[in-house]
């Protein structure tokens, strides 16, 4: 059974490295600032004690004021997992750093989020729609669509 790591412990480790990165912690997840998302993710992946080598999924939630992105990370070797969240403000052109260079599995998921939620990912090698066709107007999974 995959052990869910204590978010408080992991957050303390992150804080040692990046003092300003973590903005909120609760029992389920660590909320990091979107500016430091990439560095934190890189740290979580490369640190041997954590070794998050697998990205289960990326999910995006529309809360009207902001979009929240949920990343579930798993370490195959240590058999533990963690949920990382980040927030993205603004509805016109929300942008986040892409994690494709860390986990290839992020590729299609980020494209899906761009397609349906309209969040752009900086550094993604192929940022275009995946389900809907080129030229489709709007992003249909947003709460204010239609």
């Amino acid at each position: 059974m995959t052990v869910s790591l204590s978010t408080w412990d992991v957050a303390n480790q992150i804080k040692e490295q990046f003092p300003d990165a973590v903005s909120e912690i609760n029992d389920q997840a660590i909320l990091v600032k979107s500016e430091s998302l990439f560095e934190v993710a890189q740290y979580l992946k490369n640190r041997p004690e954590l070794d998050f080598d697998y990205l289960n999924y990326i999910s995006a939630v529309d809360y009207f004021d902001y979009f929240e992105l949920v990343y579930q990370l798993t370490s195959i070797n240590h058999n533990h997992s963690l949920i990382l969240k980040t927030r993205c403000y603004g509805r016109d052109n929300p942008t986040l750093p892409s994690l494709v260079s860390l986990w290839r599995g992020a590729d299609f998921q980020e494209r899906e989020i761009y397609d349906l939620m309209g969040i752009r990912f900086d550094g993604h090698p192929n940022m275009k729609r995946i389900f809907l066709w080129d030229g489709f107007q709007g992003h249909p999974l947003r709460k204010d669509y239609l």
Partner: peptide, 23 residues
């Protein structure tokens, strides 16, 4: 990790043609 675009990603021109056909 370097991403090899050439093999994985389709041409944007194809996407545009497909989108126009659908519209």
């Amino acid at each position: 990790m370097e991403v090899v675009q050439r093999y994985i990603y389709s041409d944007t021109e194809l996407d545009r043609t497909e989108g126009e056909a659908i519209e």
